[in-house]
Design a protein around this nucleic acid. Sequence first.
DNA 1: TTCCAGGCGTATC
DNA 2: GATACGCATGGA
Length: 267
Amino acid sequence: MDYIKKGKDILLKQPDLQLDDTLDCGQAFRWVRLPDGGYTGACLNTPLTIRPAAEQGVFLLENTTEKDFLEIWRHYFDLDTDYGEYKRRFAEDETLAKACAYAGGIRILRQDSWEALSSFIISQNNNIPRIKGIIGRLCEHYGGYPTAEQLTGETPESLGFLRAGFRAKYITDAVSRLQNGLDLDKTAALPTDDARAALMQIKGVGPKVADCAMLFGMHKLDAFPKDVWVKRVLAEWYPEGLPGCVTGCEGVAQQYLFHYIRNNYQT
DNA sequence: TTCCAGGCGTATC
DNA sequence: GATACGCATGGA
């Protein structure tokens, strides 16, 4: 990890990162793009503005302490992982090679488990601009992303201001499960199949939402969320199944493929 | 107006 | 286990 402290900012050198690829590829919903290509958002409720520097592969994390950088953002952006290694592995598959060439700056963010779980409950049968709208209203109402504890006592009716539709009752069920013994940290430590089964006890959490919660909120890289886009990828390019080069990091490959087809699909 | 969106619950076979 | 249908909301 290559960085220097520069006044109130941190200057980060990371060739395997592009902000559009990572922060606007459908894995996180709270990052807002700025006119200059920077993004402003947050990890839990620690805010950040990150901008591309003049030099390719260099980024400015603004108004951040070295402590926050090392304790929060290093982990959030998964900076101790070499994504070049994933891309070298994926290069042997023709479709994945194209996906990596299209958006080689994708990284899998290490988001908070509750934020990822609740965000992807909201995502079901929904489109990304509207998902961002609902989560934006949620954060505005609570002055930041609410914990499950903060949502205790809410009902589908009291959450009406979100305009989340039928998903509101799924959010309150998830809150209720967490209050009654479901522990996301313990779930994260389980084998992926067991963790998926535990998450699917929540109403409104099926295999796809569970795998998104595991991949983006628990960094379980063998989770492989199959949404409508990935199903198109599988049907078109992998009718016989995934190639061996993705074994153990199916989720990383999934995100490259998802982003690639969603931006290149033509009927 | 109809269709669709990072799906899932329910009914039915 | 598979398949069909409804579901809140809002943009295309």
